[in-house]
C-alpha cells in the first residue's frame, strides 16, 4: 500500500473541523485537580514519586496551569487553565517522529501514540508547543493493591516510551462498539472522557465538534468567544477555552 502524504489538504486559516473535540470553561474550573486524578486512574498513568517529579519527569496527561497577573502587591490569579493534548488537526508532534509512532488517526481524527512503535527519541515532546506529552523515564512500581486498579482496556506503558492524552479512545471505541451492537449511531453525551466525567463543576465538555447539535458545538456557539491556544502556529487544535464570560 502506498503512503499518501496529505499535507496540502489542511491549509492554515482554512476552516477546519475535527471529529472529537472539547470545550473547557475556565470560569467554572476551581482547580480541584479531580480531572488529573481521574485521568491517571483511567489511563494507567504511573506515579513517578517525589524525586523524579523534582527532575521535571512528572507524568500527567492533563494538568491545571496557574498564572498570575500584575506585580507584587497587586498580584491577581488568572482563571485555572486545564491543559491537555489539544488533538491538533495539523500536529507538530507528528512529522518529527522518526519511527512513525505518533501518527494521525484518519478514522477518529486524533493524535495517536503507538506505544509498541515508540523508540523514545522524545522529539515529539520537544516539538509540542503545549508541553503535554510525558515520557516514561523508568518502570515505575505499583505496589501490590495498586496493580488491581489498572484499566484492562489501556496498555500499561513500559520504560522509554512516550505517552499522551488519547481523548479516552478506549471509551470512544467502547461506545462505538455498543452502539454498533445495538444497530444505531453513537448518541451525543452517551459517554465522555474521564476528566469530563470527574469534573464536579462541569467545566469540561466532550463530544463531536463536526455535529452542530452536539453539546460542545452548542456551548461554542452560546459563548461565542472561545479561544484555541497557540492557534497562530497553525496546529488547528480541537480544544476550545472560554474565559471571562
Amino acid at each position: 500500500m502506498a503512503i499518501e502524504l496529505k499535507v496540502s489538504e489542511v491549509k492554515m486559516g482554512e476552516a477546519y473541523v475535527g471529529k472529537w473535540g472539547m470545550v473547557i470553561d475556565q470560569d467554572m474550573c476551581t482547580g480541584c485537580q479531580a480531572c488529573v486524578a481521574a485521568c491517571a486512574m483511567e489511563n494507567n498513568i504511573s506515579f513517578v514519586g517525589e524525586t523524579d517529579s523534582g527532575y521535571g519527569r512528572s507524568m500527567h496527561w492533563i494538568r491545571i496551569e496557574r498564572f498570575w497577573e500584575g506585580s507584587y502587591p497587586e498580584v491577581k490569579m488568572t482563571p485555572n487553565q486545564p491543559m491537555l493534548c489539544q488533538q491538533c488537526g495539523a500536529a507538530t508532534c507528528e512529522p518529527v517522529c522518526p519511527a512513525f509512532a505518533t501518527v494521525h488517526s484518519q478514522a477518529e481524527q486524533l493524535n495517536l501514540q503507538v506505544y509498541n512503535r515508540c523508540v523514545g527519541t522524545r522529539y515529539c515532546a520537544n516539538n509540542c508547543p503545549y508541553q503535554v506529552r510525558s515520557f516514561n523515564w523508568r518502570d515505575y512500581k505499583r505496589p501490590e493493591p495498586l496493580s488491581n486498579q489498572l484499566n484492562p482496556d489501556v496498555t500499561v506503558r513500559r520504560r522509554g516510551v512516550m505517552e499522551k492524552c488519547t481523548f479516552c479512545i478506549q471509551r470512544i471505541h467502547k461506545a462505538q462498539d455498543k452502539a454498533k451492537s445495538e444497530g444505531r449511531e453513537v448518541v451525543d453525551g452517551e459517554f465522555t472522557t474521564a476528566c469530563a466525567q470527574a469534573c464536579p463543576a462541569s467545566a469540561i465538555t466532550f463530544g463531536r465538534v463536526d455535529n452542530p447539535d452536539s453539546l460542545v458545538s452548542q456551548l461554542a456557539r452560546v459563548h461565542g468567544h472561545g479561544v484555541k491556544h497557540l492557534e497562530e502556529l497553525g496546529t488547528l487544535p480541537n480544544v476550545t477555552y472560554f474565559k471571562g464570560g
Binding site: 477518529e108 495517536l112 503507538v114 496498555t155 479512545i169 471505541h173
Partner: peptide, 9 residues
Amino acid sequence: LTDCGTCHY
C-alpha cells in the same frame, strides 16, 4: 480497519 488507533491505545 487499518487505523493504528483501532487496535493500539
